[in-house]
Simulated assay, not measured.
Amino acid sequence: MSFRFLHTADWQIGKPFANVPGDAGAALRAQRIATVAEIARLAATRQLDAVLVAGDIFDSNEVHDRTILRTLDALKAFTGRWIFLPGNHDAALAHSVWTRMRQMGIEENIIIADQPVPITGWDGRATILPAPLRRRRESEDQTEWFDSAATVEGALRVGLAHGSVANRLPGAAEASNEIPENRAETARLGYLALGDWHGALKIAPRTYYSGTPETDRHRANQSGFVQIVELDGVGAPERVELVGTSHFSWHDLDAELIEGTADAVSALLGQAVSDPARAVVALALTGSLSLAERYRLNAELETWRNRLHHLDLDGKGLVEDPTEDDLDSLDTSGFVRLALERLKARANDPSDPKAPAARVALRMVYLDHRQSGGVK
Rank of each mutant, 00 (worst) to 15 (best):
S2I: 01
L6D: 04
T8L: 11
T8W: 07
A9L: 06
A9M: 05
D10A: 09
W11N: 04
I13R: 09
K15C: 04
P16M: 10
G22A: 10
D23Y: 02
G25A: 09
L28W: 12
R29F: 07
R29S: 07
A30C: 02
Q31N: 13
I33L: 14
I33C: 08
A34Y: 08
A34I: 00
V36S: 07
E38A: 14
A40N: 04
L42M: 06
A44T: 03
A50S: 10
L52Q: 07
V53E: 02
A54Q: 11
G55V: 09
I57E: 03
D59I: 05
H64V: 10
I68G: 03
L69R: 15
T71F: 13
L75A: 03
R81Y: 09
R81S: 07
W82P: 05
W82I: 04
T99R: 08
Q103E: 12
N109L: 06
I110W: 01
P116Q: 12
T120S: 12
W122D: 08
D123E: 15
L133I: 03
R134A: 06
E138K: 05
S148Y: 09
A149F: 02
V152M: 08
A155H: 06
R157G: 00
H162T: 11
G163V: 08
S164C: 15
N167Q: 15
L169V: 11
L169S: 13
P170W: 08
E174P: 00
T186D: 00
A187Q: 11
L192M: 13
P205K: 06
P205H: 10
G224E: 04
F225H: 15
F225Q: 05
V229Y: 02
L231N: 02
L231G: 04
V234Q: 06
A236I: 00
P237W: 06
H247L: 12
S249G: 13
W250H: 07
D252L: 14
D254W: 01
A255D: 03
I258R: 10
E259V: 00
D263T: 07
Q271C: 05
D275P: 00
R278W: 12
A279S: 15
V280E: 07
V280M: 10
V281F: 01
V281G: 05
L283Q: 03
T286Q: 11
Y295V: 00
N298W: 04
L301S: 10
T303R: 15
R307N: 13
R307Y: 01
H309Q: 12
G315A: 15
G317K: 03
V319K: 12
E320T: 14
T332D: 07
R337F: 06
A345S: 13
A345V: 07
A347N: 06
A347D: 07
D349V: 11
S351C: 00
D352L: 01
K354P: 00
P356L: 03
P356V: 04
A358V: 07
R359W: 09
A361G: 01
M364Q: 15
H369G: 05
G373F: 11
